[in-house]
């Protein structure tokens, strides 16, 4: 693989990372070069960006990991009493 070309798999990986602002400058450059000639990845990138945007505008919330675990343990204790 030459320095400037990514495989589709690599390109998708960079694209995923980029959704979380974790791709570095060179990766982004290489991704964009790949997107010039790869239609499938262009489509994936577009959809991926749309998805990120949806999450941003919807402001969905989720429970953080620790409180979920806590909830789980309380609930399981109570569940044991019922069975």
């Amino acid at each position: 693989m030459s320095k400037l070309k990514l495989s589709c798999q690599e390109a998708n990986h960079v694209c995923d990372k980029n959704q979380y602002k974790e791709a570095n400058f060179w990766e982004k450059v290489k991704l964009n070069i790949h997107l010039i000639y790869c239609k499938a990845c262009r489509k994936y990138s577009a959809n991926n960006g749309k998805l990120s945007k949806l999450f941003k505008v919807s402001k969905v919330e989720a429970m953080d990991h620790n409180s979920k675990e806590k909830l789980k343990s309380t609930f399981e204790k109570e569940l044991a009493k019922h069975q």
Binding site: E61, A62, M63, E78, L79
Partner: peptide, 29 residues
């Protein structure tokens, strides 16, 4: 998470929302 998301959009307080969700599960049980 679904219930939590539902609650947080209505009570606007994470702690309170968590309590409400947990109460809901227990009441359901």
């Amino acid at each position: 998470d679904y219930l939590f998301n539902y609650t947080i959009s209505r009570v606007n307080d994470r702690e309170m929302a968590q309590d409400l969700v947990s109460e809901t599960f227990l009441a359901g049980l």
